[in-house]
Amino acid sequence: MKPNKLSDLTLEELTKQKKQMSGIVGATIAVLLIFLGAMIFLIYRKQNLTLLAILPSAGLALLPGVIRLNQLNAEIKARGGK
Rank of each mutant, 00 (worst) to 15 (best):
L60D: 13
A27C: 05
I54R: 07
L49M: 09
S57C: 03
M39E: 08
V66C: 07
Q20G: 02
L32G: 02
L55D: 01
A27M: 05
I76Y: 08
K19M: 01
I54P: 02
A53L: 13
A61T: 14
L52Y: 15
K5R: 15
I29D: 02
A38M: 10
K82E: 15
E75T: 12
L14E: 00
P64H: 13
N70P: 02
A78I: 07
L42G: 04
Q17K: 13
E13V: 00
E12G: 03
V25I: 02
T50L: 10
G59Q: 11
T15V: 01
G81A: 12
A78Q: 15
N70D: 06
G59M: 07
R68T: 04
G23T: 02
K46I: 00
G81D: 06
K16S: 03
I34G: 03
M21I: 00
S7A: 12
R68M: 10
T28I: 02
P64V: 07
Y44Q: 09
K46R: 09
A61K: 11
A58Q: 09
E12H: 09
S57K: 15
I67V: 09
L9S: 00
V66D: 05
L36Q: 13
K16N: 10
F41N: 04
L9T: 00
I43M: 07
A74Q: 15
G26A: 06
L51P: 01
E13S: 07
T10C: 04
G65Q: 04
R68C: 03
L69E: 06
L72C: 08
L14N: 00
N73C: 03
R68S: 06
L72V: 06
G23A: 03
M1K: 15
L42W: 15
N70M: 06
L32R: 02
A53P: 11
Q47A: 06
V31K: 11
E12T: 06
S7V: 09
I29Y: 02
L11F: 05
P56F: 11
V66S: 08
K16F: 10
A38K: 14
N70A: 13
K46Y: 12
N70L: 10
P3C: 03
L52F: 15
L33E: 12
A53S: 14
